[in-house]
Design a binder for these strands. Sequence first.
DNA 1: GCCAACGTTGGC
DNA 2: GCCAACGTTGGC
Length: 156
Amino acid sequence: MTTRKRYWLMKSEPNDFSIDDLERVGTEPWTGVRNYQARNFMRDSMQVGDGVLFYHSNTEVPGIYGIAEVAGAPHPDPTQFKKKSKYFDAKASHEEPRWFLIDVGFVRKLERPIPLEEIRSHADRLGEDFALIRKGSRLSVLPVTAAQWKYLLALE
DNA sequence: GCCAACGTTGGC
DNA sequence: GCCAACGTTGGC
């Protein structure tokens, strides 16, 4: 059974992994998410072909910098098993993995980044429940409605 | 670098 | 199950 295309926003610190890095490598396994809500979105709700807004956090001008897509089915995050990784999780096992990820594929960079500040100024149109601008929300993987997707990209 | 907000851990 | 302590996120 197929389900209609969904939309997401995924945050990354550009010092760590930027939209330019994604353009270079083409596809990247989204390792290192250690938040259950974000994991659940990747494990349970994301489907190949879903749209992804690529967001730069912890940077001079935080905002949406590009478009990506879900490029692979969910599978266990290999870094949880690697003792030397900073994402190692002693409570995870191959039999019972705790962390799952999807692969993210490059689509395009935005002609013009959409700064968080500008996104905030459209809060009334985007809705109070939009997790990106909801007070206190720090989710690094979050759902975007089709209407929000369209509205945000119209700002480009 | 600061710090508010939030999530997780662990003692009890 | 409560909640204090701690760690992390991420804007500023």
